[in-house]
Design a binder for these strands. Sequence first.
DNA 1: TTGTACGCGTTATCAA
DNA 2: TTGATAACGCGTACAA
Lengths: 332, 332
Amino acid sequence: MKRITIEDVAAAAGVSRQTVSRAMNDKGEISPETKERVLKAIQDLGYQPNRLAQGMVTQRTKTVGLVMPDITNLFFPEVSRGVQDASRLHDYNVLLCNTDDRPEEEIRVLHSLAAQRVDGIFMIGSVADDPTLTRFADSYSPIVMLNRFFAHPNVSLIIVDNERGAFLAVEHLIAQGHRTIGMLAASIFSRSLVRRVRGYEEALKHYGIAVDRRLIVGETPILQGGYNAMQELMRAHPEVTAVFTYNDLMGLGAMRAVRDLGKRVPEDIALIGFDNIGMASMATPSLSSIHVDKYAIGQKAMNRILDMLDRPDDSFATIEVGVELIQRESTG
Amino acid sequence: MKRITIEDVAAAAGVSRQTVSRAMNDKGEISPETKERVLKAIQDLGYQPNRLAQGMVTQRTKTVGLVMPDITNLFFPEVSRGVQDASRLHDYNVLLCNTDDRPEEEIRVLHSLAAQRVDGIFMIGSVADDPTLTRFADSYSPIVMLNRFFAHPNVSLIIVDNERGAFLAVEHLIAQGHRTIGMLAASIFSRSLVRRVRGYEEALKHYGIAVDRRLIVGETPILQGGYNAMQELMRAHPEVTAVFTYNDLMGLGAMRAVRDLGKRVPEDIALIGFDNIGMASMATPSLSSIHVDKYAIGQKAMNRILDMLDRPDDSFATIEVGVELIQRESTG
DNA sequence: TTGTACGCGTTATCAA
DNA sequence: TTGATAACGCGTACAA
């Protein structure tokens, strides 16, 4: 069980530690013969440099942290894959942390990652308050945040065009002839929420429909939350003929609720979600949605972290992520 | 941006490094006054010990590796949450790696985790061959594997009762009056697959129904795979009235396929899946399934790793995980 | 009760 | 081209 070190390799190859290091990182001159001899010893012994030790001296751990509310929420696994696939290409590993939208937990996790000296952090659904986050960012970089405004030299932003997405969704419902359109909103406060609600309202206004706040029901943005919110909305406002949901999970939960109340989608109620998770296309009826390239978001975040690492003094523009209307059966 | 070290704290408190260390780990004697003074300095400076350095000397990184085929597959996020919640309680972090069921990638990832000196590894859906894995396990521990037999002192096993689950599923279909029952199997070879197919066959035999291998269609065990396999099966064997799918993802894909061929679930075709992922209950119709406590699997795996770390010389019994039939609309 | 010195495994600096 | 030596930040015997 004893791990082999660079010293073992040096002994086997009859050279010094330093020469072994040179052979691996091929910087500094080294004769082809010795290099080959060392490489062979490495091969024979199955030696792998200790990343901790490397990290100590290089101040690079080749590890990044990924902080999100809950990997169990279908939006995040795809983002996570994007991060991980991109990180693998650069020999990075990813530490994954869930916060359940709890600010204290988010802060705890952040400090834990800092203690582990990750090279960068990607935060999704950040819920901590600005001052606390600022203090953290002051002492740590680089950080990439998704869907949250945060002006700080060590922080880079990725913003999805949530407002436009919501507008497209509601515009689509209106185009289908709907006039009384509800919304299932998230009970977790976030920038995404604010923008999606605004997009919803803007679309209504744009087409001359009065906004009725009572048609907006807030709930946990998961399947069950969508289910509950939809039941509530339909009971209180049977006149609603179409509903835009904060995300697809709520949309799918809502679909189930509609059915359990003896109504049909889209005949009685049209539904459109947001995010376009894989399940949306497979549902019956399939769920219309606003497509967001989650995988690409993950990739971009990781690459941005690498860029920031490469050029610590540069400032980087916010990355804008477009959206697209995906029309399916749930909106007729 | 310069990180503060234990030395800074010592200077601030007017003591030596050692005293600071003592104050934190409260072992060894230390006067209450100095301890308090040190703790205050730590607080003031916002000092956090460098985990890399700690790891170097303690040979413990407080980090575990979680290796799985694809976090995007709905089964794994829940397991992942179980691992992470349990690990958090012990101040551990989790490195997540996807292998896409590729043996080379699995091996690469394993070595990467070893290089990072994780304290333990949890492998799900391991696809590497036995000799390679044995060689790795020889030099590394502890390892926990899910649903794969592997006799090795450094490896602990968690086994789901797949055969019984499959038996229950098919028995249920038979109880509903079905006699021509197909199966959508995974095209990825694994112990789970073998056992689920066996359970399917055993149930048929047990109730005096001849096994017809042509009714077993293999495909990728995801939504799209289920969709494709179901189309194929229904075209080739329209006489089939019920189908047991390797997992819920395939079941949900199959449900969609049935509908796209103009048939209904469960009137024309009954469907039952495996795993009982969250989406199963929300589908329309809701999908019957075999419940597996994924979250508990993750928790148990993490705790087993900790136990193995505590008592390296003990041998540990395989953890058996039970299953349960969940009857829903898709089977009438 | 407190401080000194060494070692963990690696890379970087400098001298040979 | 190669090797000795000093960091990196911490825990821990041992000495004071």
